[in-house]
């Protein structure tokens, strides 16, 4: 069992700058929110932080969170696994797709407390050592992205789509990948990448 990862310390990368800015902004929002609902919160005992054990990419993490924290926010903000993206935060775009016990789900539509005991796989958990997953390789080969924001969700969804046996034709891939939107409209190459990875798996 590991605890939450220690914050990055050494290099001041673009990512760490963005992270600390986001944390500062989030702090402001949380503070004002607490003031505005203070009376309602004290009227009942609900909402207290609770200890939750999440199993992510083969590692167990024990964190204390409020019940309202989605699995997506727990992954990104508490475990530092920012590969899973937050797009619409309402189940429409699919950027937050992860696997729970091998099945693809939208992590913004489930609470972290509801996923205790489940084996979660995020895009960070697809590689084997330094080797990319065959679906990741296929996305690179086919240039199946432009801005990349939807890509982790597309890849997680594609892994499940192939595993389910729903990648037999272009039409079938389009139907079964429909829960993942790409605002750059790289669909042509995404479909080609999924078809290629599925074909590779059959060889």
């Amino acid at each position: 069992m590991t605890d939450e990862p220690a914050p990055e310390s050494s290099a001041h990368t673009r990512r760490t700058v963005l992270k600390s800015t986001a944390a500062a902004a989030a702090g402001t929002v949380v503070a004002s929110h607490h003031t505005s609902v203070a009376s309602a919160e004290t009227a009942h005992t609900g909402g207290a932080r609770t200890r939750v054990t999440l199993s992510v990419n083969g590692e167990r993490h024990r964190i204390a969170i409020e019940p309202r924290v989605t699995l997506l926010d727990a992954l990104r903000d508490r475990l530092g696994l920012t590969g899973t993206k937050k797009g619409c935060d309402r189940g429409e775009c699919g950027a937050c797709t992860v696997l729970a016990d091998g099945e693809r789900i939208k992590s913004c539509l489930t609470l972290a407390v509801m996923r205790q005991g489940a084996e979660i796989t995020t895009v960070e958990g697809l590689t084997r050592g330094d080797d990319l997953h065959p679906v990741q390789e296929a996305f690179i080969r086919h240039d199946a992205f432009q801005c990349g924001a939807c890509t982790p969700g597309q890849i997680m969804s594609a892994v499940a789509c192939i595993d389910e046996g729903h990648a037999g034709s272009e039409a079938e891939i389009r139907e079964w990948m429909s829960g993942n939107l790409c605002r750059c409209a790289a669909y042509q190459n995404i479909v080609a990448a999924v078809a290629d990875a599925a074909e590779e798996g059959r060889r």
Binding site: S157, S178, G179, N180
Partner: peptide, 9 residues
């Protein structure tokens, strides 16, 4: 109905 992800949930 919905999407494959939502149908799993």
């Amino acid at each position: 109905s919905a999407s494959p992800q939502v149908r799993n949930m």
